[in-house]
Nucleic acid binder design. Sequence first.
DNA 1: TTTT
DNA 2: TTTT
Lengths: 137, 137, 137, 137
Amino acid sequence: MLNRVILIGRLTKDPELRYTPSGHATSTFTLATDRPFSSGQGEREADFIPIVTWRQTAEACANYLRKGRLCAVEGRIQTRNYENNEGRRVYITEVVADNVRFLERGQTPQSSPERGQGDPFPDDGRPIDISDDDLPF
Amino acid sequence: MLNRVILIGRLTKDPELRYTPSGHATSTFTLATDRPFSSGQGEREADFIPIVTWRQTAEACANYLRKGRLCAVEGRIQTRNYENNEGRRVYITEVVADNVRFLERGQTPQSSPERGQGDPFPDDGRPIDISDDDLPF
Amino acid sequence: MLNRVILIGRLTKDPELRYTPSGHATSTFTLATDRPFSSGQGEREADFIPIVTWRQTAEACANYLRKGRLCAVEGRIQTRNYENNEGRRVYITEVVADNVRFLERGQTPQSSPERGQGDPFPDDGRPIDISDDDLPF
Amino acid sequence: MLNRVILIGRLTKDPELRYTPSGHATSTFTLATDRPFSSGQGEREADFIPIVTWRQTAEACANYLRKGRLCAVEGRIQTRNYENNEGRRVYITEVVADNVRFLERGQTPQSSPERGQGDPFPDDGRPIDISDDDLPF
DNA sequence: TTTT
DNA sequence: TTTT
């Protein structure tokens, strides 16, 4: 069934990269997307949308994206729930990205030099456009 | 900034219609959208996405949509949070719809005869396509 | 780069199925999508959008879709051009579909009984959702 | 009915601004969007998509967008046709944009100094996000 | 008639 | 817990 999301926004933090027990990479981050007509008067100015990526996309995001960077995300909304350690059911709504496009050249920020592997733009000046199946394996 | 969602799915229940203190209509419902490739073996088969509508759209949804009905929703993802009655902050991610299209002729279900006002398809057989600004007033 | 189209509309004719010299199936049809706010007074009421599909999607569309049937199409805009038989360059803009969802149960119309293979809805009543890579091989 | 297009690409030329007899601004340009997986071997690398904008959006595009600039466009596909001066019917498929987002700071290029009014990014560094109804009046 |  |  149709379930399609397209976002442009900025990362609120560096992405977090993890591996599943079976060795699959997944990275998560939050995208801040400015609201179109916020008056600025006490109103919230942005939505903060949780993004999940898998596999090559996850690794590319972890390598190239950083806090504050602008990017476009294409994916679908996923809902899931789990029981937390207080026995309470927690409901999650998030976006599983199958395509992430970096919209800014990036110099790796000082805050995470160990992970960044430089600039996602190759010598010809064209940005990388990473894509991936979003099946959960 | 760009924040666009398009969904096709079925209502899990009848919509809930409310009015703000200032008299604006809002209706909420959950849309079940089948996942594209679920194996069916213990996997979840659908995502359950919370939808919010306002004004005319809210009233039209309350009048014409019912549990199980198929519709298309266009909107944006909104995040907000509030403190619940235990002093705990609750984070919400939902879709604010600015356009809802009914994809099935509907006979009002018996479960809510008082509110349904019949069939959203006028005499010429073309479905109604309701639209609305999604500004929070 | 981002190039995403989502449409809901009705076929203006039965799809046309063809095979490339290398044996790949492709089907084409036109989708009529009603304009949101047409006054009806001399204005055009719909856009007529040319759709191209490939492979399994092409064959499923040829088998199950018919003139007048409602469906949702997800894809990307493609432009190409060729020289016609008068030596004039013709520019084409069309939608290459990578996902087509049938939104109506369909009894095969009498006009094309040889090709239709019945109803795209299996016994459990859930519509088929066909998907395919949209790479031109 | 649902008809939604989202594109990210670069202008192939400066936009063309015109006014209708009744005084409404409209601007047109072509967006080059790179294809996701072009091998580069004789294949076309991009689609060239004709964009139409109206009113404030038209004027903002004419003022701030220039050849080569990156932007995001949200809109719908429109088809129309007319008879050309040789009595031949010409069919047009184009995107009517209702939202254009500039994705790069722009110094006005030398090629059109008279029209450019500088930088679409105000002092606070946030890009302008222009929006408009896309009704043809 | 095409952009980086 | 939030980005420019």
